[in-house]
């Protein structure tokens, strides 16, 4: 029996799980694109900069709605923001536990909320700069810029985290965010 199963599948029974639905993936890469465009390519005080900013806000808004109604892995319940879980996850890494998280891992979860909150805060301060009340007010402009610096730092940390987790758990996270599937290595525990 066991031998049949082992030889039956050519690749040593690694399993694939569909984790990220297309909406999650589209929102993820669109948001990345808006950040890249507004951060690096578009003139800062242009109309295009404003519109791209609003699109970014809309994307995060849509993702939050999807986190209420969407499929299981996309929902808030799959990745509750919990520093305690993040600490436990860190300890597990130190102990050499390489189990796979199907949704975001607890550390990644904190990063997700951090990036969403940063984008919203950048969007709001950006909008404030276009209003008569706050136009030219210094603290708003400064907040906008400091928040963007924080976002850049967060994004680089996010990329580093993805690289680390891909190496550590053996699940290619970038590919999972492109085709939606996580390939779980054989015999790896799943949470």
């Amino acid at each position: 029996m066991i031998t049949v199963e082992q030889t039956a599948s050519g690749r040593a029974s690694a399993r694939e799980v569909v984790v990220w639905d297309p909406l999650v993936r589209l929102i993820h890469w669109s948001l990345a694109l808006t950040i890249l465009l507004n951060g690096a390519f578009v003139e800062e005080e242009s109309k295009a900069h404003e519109w791209i900013g609003y699109v970014a806000l809309g994307l995060v808004g849509l993702r939050l709605v999807w986190a209420l109604f969407g499929p299981a892995y996309a929902r808030f319940s799959a990745f509750p923001p919990s520093p305690a879980r993040a600490v436990r996850h860190l300890r597990a890494i130190v102990r050499g536990n390489r189990s796979v998280h199907l949704s975001h891992n607890p550390l990644g979860t904190l990063m997700v909320y951090n990036i969403w909150a940063s984008v919203i805060a950048i969007g709001v301060t950006g909008y404030m700069m276009t209003t008569i009340t706050f136009f030219g007010v210094e603290w708003v402009e400064e907040a906008h810029e400091v928040l963007f610096g924080w976002l850049l730092f967060s994004v680089s940390l996010h990329v580093a985290g993805v690289a680390f987790d891909t190496w550590w758990s053996g699940v290619n996270l970038v590919r999972a965010m492109i085709n939606g599937r996580k390939t779980i290595p054989e015999g790896r525990k799943v949470q």
Partner: peptide
């Protein structure tokens, strides 16, 4: 099915962002 899901997601994205603009 997968293609259908992707098309649906694209529509949601476009329509959702336009909806927000209209509301604004």
């Amino acid at each position: 099915k997968e293609r259908r899901a992707t098309v649906l997601a694209g529509l949601i994205l476009l329509q959702g962002v336009s909806a927000l603009f209209f509301i604004g």
